[in-house]
Design a protein around this nucleic acid. Sequence first.
DNA 1: CGTATGAGGTAAAACGTTAAACTGCAATGG
DNA 2: CCATTGCAGTTTAACGTTTTACCTCATACG
Lengths: 347, 347
Amino acid sequence: MVTLKEIARECNVSPTTISNILNGKPKVSEETRQRVMETVDRMGYRPNYFAQGLRKQRTKTIGLVAEDIAQFTTPEVVEGIMNRCEEKGYRAIVKNLRLYARWSDLWFHKESEYHSILDPTMKELQSFQVDGIIYIAGHGRVIDCFPEGFKIPAVMAYAFAENPQIPSVAIDDRKSAYEIVKYLISKGHRKIGVISGKEGNLHTKERLLGYQRALYESRILYNPVLVRYAGWDKESAYQEAKELLKQDITAVFCMADRMAGGVYRLLAEMGLRVGADIAVAGFDNQDIAEYFVPGLTTMALPLKEIGQTSADLLLDRLEGARAEEQGQNRFLIPCTFIERESVHTIS
Amino acid sequence: MVTLKEIARECNVSPTTISNILNGKPKVSEETRQRVMETVDRMGYRPNYFAQGLRKQRTKTIGLVAEDIAQFTTPEVVEGIMNRCEEKGYRAIVKNLRLYARWSDLWFHKESEYHSILDPTMKELQSFQVDGIIYIAGHGRVIDCFPEGFKIPAVMAYAFAENPQIPSVAIDDRKSAYEIVKYLISKGHRKIGVISGKEGNLHTKERLLGYQRALYESRILYNPVLVRYAGWDKESAYQEAKELLKQDITAVFCMADRMAGGVYRLLAEMGLRVGADIAVAGFDNQDIAEYFVPGLTTMALPLKEIGQTSADLLLDRLEGARAEEQGQNRFLIPCTFIERESVHTIS
DNA sequence: CGTATGAGGTAAAACGTTAAACTGCAATGG
DNA sequence: CCATTGCAGTTTAACGTTTTACCTCATACG
């Protein structure tokens, strides 16, 4: 490894001067700058981040804590964050909590189990002297990962932090559900069943509120029998859809594309054609939606934007733009409607 | 941040002693050890990696270079690597090259463009003083990312490195394709069409060899008309399948589940039932396969194992287990056969 | 008794970089 | 002519660890 000292010897100046040049400090003659830069390039010098981080007390590195890096929502959020970091001269390091046994369920049972996973990870990031932390939630309930008085600047992505000090960036569930149900209504559907997410889950609740509002605006009475709670997965959706289809409905709104998969299967078994005999709408625009036959109409999650917004929030704060702007700190990013062929018009 | 010095003052010993204790050096009395450990815990001391990395010249950190972190194969490989690293006391930091515009295509055209992306990333990792590097390839052609004489210990994951010095861990395409075609044959199919990956691609070639061998063993003549090259994506597979289905076949082997998606759609349009009128097999066991109706029979990629094996290879080398064991350095990991309902038995 | 030996430490230097204080020189202003 | 200012640097110390060399006792051995 080439060090500053070696460059200095080569150029007959002090290491400080090289450092000043590389960090854009003033007080250097143009001639020396040229000579040094040329030598730096020629010798392939690279600053040692460990020495830099030790001396400056800023590492220009942020830590990403992912509840599950293999969950389909996570990689794109990570990508969005990394893009922004790169633009602003920061680095991101990712830690994986591996919290999900299957996609839909947190595998642990007690909060203490959670903390026995989270705490070493946080400690690790502290050892890495990260300037800030972004927590990337999975789809489950949110747990208290930033206790009152958490010292490191932090942002919660894809969920709301319990601690109100921590800015959060999440999807606008209510509005998105509202829009897709509005769309179903605009296609003539008025008897709309719901395969819902888990009862008590925040996404579930917000999406139901959106559904409810869309019905209300069209003067359709909310009928609780048409709402069946499933577990975000295909299997339970299949089971609940069996019950739901005993009712007289023309459309099903599924709160996850995976669950729409269960509904598709059931309808196939019942000999009903999606997008002809019955309409199905999903949520997430997961990869699978495009491959359903017929293609699934759904809402696309703004994963990259969530990542970017989270990074912007954190980096702005680190750069001291607005240290404690106490106003709004919950940001809702809208989903994008994706129309495919699973919803037909009825009269 | 609590430092060694503060612990030292608190315990009335020198920082050296604390360091010795924490690093398990001998020459410490049991009594002092107790006292120090207790203080370390109480004060929540965490070693500063930057100081450590600077002093020792090993950082116990490896760099991961992903061609595309959002490609469906990548996160699980990353997870496999991280698990192993954690077990062995290493850390991994991920860099994303963002090389794929759509899932199937590298977006750049000239090798120089590629290097203008790769080189800064590699430099960055050097600045991070990583002890080693794992390159996680995407699905495209392999480019020369480890030039002759690359100094940092490195491993190629999910592809073969051009540089023969670099150990590589990839899927056993040939055997896997052989197995799935064997399965089709065992179900009575003898006229088996192929929706193949891009011509010239290594995965394509190996999988075709597997197909060829399976046919050969059952004394079925290889008919080039039954092999149609597509572009790994749904659309091109749909187009090629149109041509393929003009031939008299009873089964289609698709070299990617996404392509099977195109075939499913075409068959639906033609009024043919998958798993009844015609059999379809896929490859990858991508999320989507489970959601097809009927479920797609396919080969599951051993992504986690690829990650783990790559990490083992690199870490063993870093630990000096077998510095230059020149023997085998290409490792093939088998896929796992996943049976669903897309292949029926014929007589 | 004198010298090894070992146990249980400590002091100082070093890793590569940068912030702060300082230096030497020339030009400028009054 | 002297004080001030500006330029283009240099020197020194520091960041938090770990390594190397060293020190001081106490005990054992011949």
